[in-house]
Design a protein around this nucleic acid. Structure first.
Length: 576
RNA sequence: CGGAGCGUAGCGCAGUCUGGUAGCGCGUUUGGUUCGGGACCAAAAGGCCGAGGGUUCAAAUCCCUCCGCUCCGACCA
């Protein structure tokens, strides 16, 4: 391929709407172009990368025994109504009607479609286990698209679905995909780590997310270097032993609690500043509505409630902060001054984080506007059932690992894949059954497995770039080699460059020859910006000095190899 | 959905307060000089100033309505 024929425009300046490096580079290097908010066109270079990732995904899925199909983007509402998700997916799903007023969704995922297909085509245990997948565009009506391809309204996703006869089989299918994912990301040149995640609606189902660690990541992940425990912050547990009680002040003394005026100080930060005490000296009390029923949740002043843990602990379908009227009614005070001691509604259930168990000498809201209480001893002054103490907060950096007791660290991650045991939620809803060898019908057991293909593209950039541009791993680079013909008007240089192009192409190596009549500086800057893994410089000057210059994008100039033109291709092959 | 900001050439921006023939840099085209890390000179093309309405002799500029985009927050199998 000749650069002069390539449909591309690199940008010297950063796009004004890009916040993170990978997004800036994606646009500057001419891989994509924004069509509208959260919607991108893939230009030739971006398309090539997307195709390479797609190919890796496909090869590993096939190698793992999965079979590729493709299902419609446009999905009939009735499938979604079968599982109830037409309503529960809410506004995240694009919905539309055809001219006959039939309702459709633009598929945000495809459990229903795949389950429906499996139901109609699978009838015997002899057809199982079965894993089928597709690589298809998905749609989500994101409230706030951002970070380029990271969170867009339209994205390319590989979704696979496994169907098994029993739990053991489902387990095998799960780990089969899990290990295929490890290979996919490794081949893409990505360091992606599997972390335990919350199962959402699926209850305690096993699920792992694969995360690419990056400061720009949207998810928090807790890691324990001691035992390797890794979990999404939604899920991460912390040790609750004597050392595991967090950073909160236990407090001493048994003085009775007393009111202190704290006019206008509603947040922990405000009260802490007002009283000149650390946040950990306080009890943060929040009133939640668990399926509509008010519950007070108390945690250390320097901790945040983990609503997923809270929901699980309460066994509720939905928890959300209670509205202000409810807060006033059950506590007697407005939000900001509520606490666990003698709320207006004496029957109000109070639950507390395990780290607060037995805490004394604390400061909490007085359930009276403008006042807090000091010297609060939770076990003495508050009505909290012993069983209502549990791990209810978000893990913080330095918290103790629940498995091995060593301190954990918090990192940021970009979720590029997830494997999920679905059980029978969908197959039961569709009555997707098979017959066993005794002609008995059983519901198939299902798993689903996603990889964000377009998001992975950007994650590679986020994980592999420097101040000059992208540094592509060879496996997904738009071209593996760039041959910089610095003197396209020079017959000798052009002959060498074109010969290299032909030879590399016939060896199956993607190569682009920069034959533009640009100054060398411009060409070098563009090559670095786009980030071709290997760069060959062919110039009249170099040829006069004995050869072409070859270096990796990841190496600095001092590693440049000078090779006679005849040996250049062999050297390039070694370096890829 | 709440709060804030922005829509002017392909990209990045000035001009708007104080109404009077639409500008700068990059990119593009042509010619010339250059030529190993984003050169220089000269000439040129390229705009419904987001859309609609209003005020005015006159609107990118003032007023109203709508649309779009971005940021913060809420939300996110």
């Amino acid at each position: 391929m000749k650069w002069s024929k390539l449909f591309i425009q690199t940008l010297r300046e950063n796009p004004q709407d890009a916040e993170i490096d990978s997004h800036r580079l994606l646009v500057r290097a001419g891989l994509v172009r924004k069509v509208a908010g959260g919607l991108y066109a893939y230009l030739p270079l971006g398309m090539r990368v997307l195709e390479k990732i797609r190919r890796i995904v496909r090869e590993e899925m096939d190698a793992a025994g999965a079979q590729e199909i493709v299902t419609p983007v446009l999905q009939p509402a009735e499938l979604w109504r079968t599982t109830g998700r037409w309503d529960t997916m809410g506004p995240n799903m694009f919905k539309l009607r055809d001219r006959a007023e039939h309702e459709f969704a633009l598929g945000p995922t495809a459990e229903e479609v795949f389950t429906d297909i499996a139901k109609s085509l699978v009838s015997s245990y002899r057809q199982l286990p079965l894993t089928i997948y597709q690589i298809q565009w998905k749609f989500r009506d994101e409230t706030r698209p951002r970070f380029g391809l990271m969170r867009s309204k339209e994205f390319l996703m590989k979704d696979a679905y496994s169907f098994d006869t029993d739990a053991d089989g489902a387990d095998r299918s799960y780990w089969n995909m899990y290990h295929a994912y490890e290979r996919v990301f490794a081949r893409c040149g990505l360091k992606a780590v599997p972390v335990q995640a919350d199962g959402g609606d699926m209850g305690d189902s096993m699920t792992h997310e694969f995360h690419v660690l990056a400061d720009a990541g949207e998810d928090g992940i807790a890691f324990c270097e001691g035992c390797g425990y890794a979990a999404n912050l939604e899920k991460a547990e912390r040790g609750t032993g004597e050392q595991g009680t967090g950073n909160g002040e236990r407090g001493t003394g048994n003085a009775p609690f007393e009111e202190v005026p704290t006019p206008g100080a509603k947040t922990i930060d405000q009260v802490a500043a007002f009283m000149d005490l650390p946040a950990s000296a306080f009890v943060k009390s929040l009133v939640y509505a668990a399926d509509g029923k008010p519950v007070m949740v108390c945690v250390d002043g320097d901790r945040d409630v983990n609503e997923v843990k809270l929901r699980r602990f309460l066994g509720a379908k939905k928890v959300e902060l209670a509205d202000f009227e409810t807060v006033l009614r059950v506590t007697g005070a407005n939000a900001g001054f509520v606490g666990p001691v003698k709320p207006a509604d004496a029957s109000l259930r109070i639950v507390c984080d395990i780290a607060l168990k037995g805490a004394a000498g604390r400061i909490a809201g007085a359930n009276k506007d403008g006042f807090h209480l000091k010297n609060v001893d939770l076990s003495r002054d508050a009505k909290i059932a012993g069983a209502d103490c549990a791990d209810l907060t978000v893990v913080k950096d330095g918290d103790i690992c629940a498995k091995c007791g060593r301190p954990m660290t918090i990192k940021r991650g970009i979720e590029v894949g997830q494997v999920f045991k679905l059980g029978t939620k969908y197959t039961a809803a569709f009555n997707a059954v098979y017959k066993n060898d005794k002609l008995e019908e059983h519901v198939m057991i299902m798993g689903c497995y996603g990889i964000g293909v377009s998001r992975t593209l950007q994650a590679v950039i986020e994980q592999s770039h420097d101040k000059d541009g992208i540094v592509w791993p060879a496996s997904v680079a738009p071209y593996q080699v760039v041959v910089e013909n610095l003197d396209p008007d020079n017959a000798e240089a052009t002959k060498v460059a074109d010969a290299m192009e032909a030879e590399l192409e016939s060896a199956g190596i993607d190569v682009i020859v920069d034959d533009r009549a640009e100054r060398p500086g411009v060409k070098f800057k563009d090559a670095d910006l786009i980030g071709f893994p290997v760069r060959v410089v062919v110039g009249a000057k170099g040829l006069a000095n004995g050869g072409v210059e070859i270096k990796r994008r990841s190496e600095d100039k001092s590693k440049t190899r000078i090779v006679p033109p005849g040996g250049a291709v062999a050297t390039v092959k070694e370096m890829l």
